[in-house]
Simulated scan of single mutants.
Amino acid sequence: MDTERLIMRRWRESDREPFAAMNADPEVMEHFVAPLTRAQSDAMVDRVEQGFDEHGYGLWALEVRATGDFIGFTGLALQTFEAPFTPAVEVGWRLARHAWGHGYAIEAARQAVAYGFDESGLTEIVSMTAVHNDRSRAVMERLGMTRDPADDFEHSKVPAGHPLRPHVLYRLRRS
């Protein structure tokens, strides 16, 4: 899948090193419990690729068309952790710090959402983040997603009492 400035594609072996570096960056991982080790990062790529095979969609690797640089991912992921709204398909993104502020997340997320509705036949796509992740919340709102505070939740994969456990949920329904 392509956008004006990005190539959204399946993962390559050469993506693993820059992806691991990105996942080890404390600033990129600020709204996660901890940065990922190289082994955890590689395992995530393996799960993402398995998801493509099982569902026909996943978290596409992002490449800047003009330079060929890998900058992160954007895409769709089936979420089945314990929460009132799961199972659900989430649109999500994670970009390397040098790719922030260029509009890449919203550009790719719009393409992923269109794919989910038009190609995969989804009727709703959600997105979630820690309460204080203002950058991601802004992307969700620019996507046209809406939040009902009654849907906010304590993320079951975040330890009890951790400041990142409270999450907001945004929804977008097929129009």
Score class of each variant (00 low, 15 high):
residue 75 G to W: 05
residue 170 Y to V: 00
residue 97 R to Y: 09
residue 5 R to H: 13
residue 9 R to V: 10
residue 152 D to K: 14
residue 106 I to E: 10
residue 21 A to H: 04
residue 33 V to F: 00
residue 71 I to W: 02
residue 139 V to Y: 02
residue 85 F to Y: 15
residue 89 V to N: 08
residue 48 V to N: 04
residue 92 G to L: 11
residue 51 G to F: 06
residue 1 M to W: 05
residue 130 A to M: 10
residue 110 R to I: 08
residue 65 R to F: 02
residue 54 E to G: 00
residue 158 V to M: 04
residue 112 A to S: 15
residue 160 A to H: 14
residue 70 F to W: 03
residue 23 N to D: 03
residue 43 A to I: 04
residue 62 L to V: 09
residue 12 R to T: 13
residue 167 H to W: 07
residue 136 S to T: 07
residue 126 V to D: 08
residue 166 P to G: 04
residue 51 G to S: 14
residue 160 A to N: 11
residue 127 S to G: 15
residue 56 G to C: 01
residue 115 Y to H: 13
residue 98 H to K: 09
residue 74 T to Y: 05
residue 20 A to I: 05
residue 120 S to E: 13
residue 10 R to T: 11
residue 88 A to M: 12
residue 107 E to W: 05
residue 140 M to F: 12
residue 37 T to F: 01
residue 26 P to A: 03
residue 174 R to I: 05
residue 60 W to T: 06
residue 70 F to V: 15
residue 21 A to N: 11
residue 108 A to P: 09
residue 95 L to K: 07
residue 156 S to M: 03
residue 165 R to N: 06
residue 2 D to S: 09
residue 129 T to W: 01
residue 20 A to G: 08
residue 124 E to G: 13
residue 71 I to V: 15
residue 127 S to D: 04
residue 132 H to S: 06
residue 125 I to S: 02
residue 148 D to G: 02
residue 75 G to D: 04
residue 157 K to E: 14
residue 49 E to P: 00
residue 116 G to P: 11
residue 145 M to V: 13
residue 31 H to V: 00
residue 16 R to D: 09
residue 46 D to S: 03
residue 109 A to K: 12
residue 134 D to Q: 12
residue 122 L to C: 12
residue 49 E to F: 04
residue 105 A to V: 10
residue 67 T to V: 09
residue 71 I to M: 00
residue 44 M to Q: 10
residue 36 L to I: 01
residue 120 S to L: 15
residue 49 E to G: 02
residue 165 R to V: 12
residue 118 D to N: 15
residue 159 P to R: 03
residue 65 R to H: 06
residue 152 D to R: 05
residue 171 R to L: 02
residue 143 L to R: 04
residue 161 G to A: 13
residue 150 A to E: 09
residue 141 E to C: 08
residue 53 D to C: 06
residue 113 V to A: 14
residue 57 Y to V: 13
residue 64 V to R: 07
residue 75 G to C: 11
residue 20 A to K: 02
residue 104 Y to I: 09
residue 111 Q to A: 14
residue 25 D to N: 10
residue 118 D to L: 12
residue 112 A to M: 10
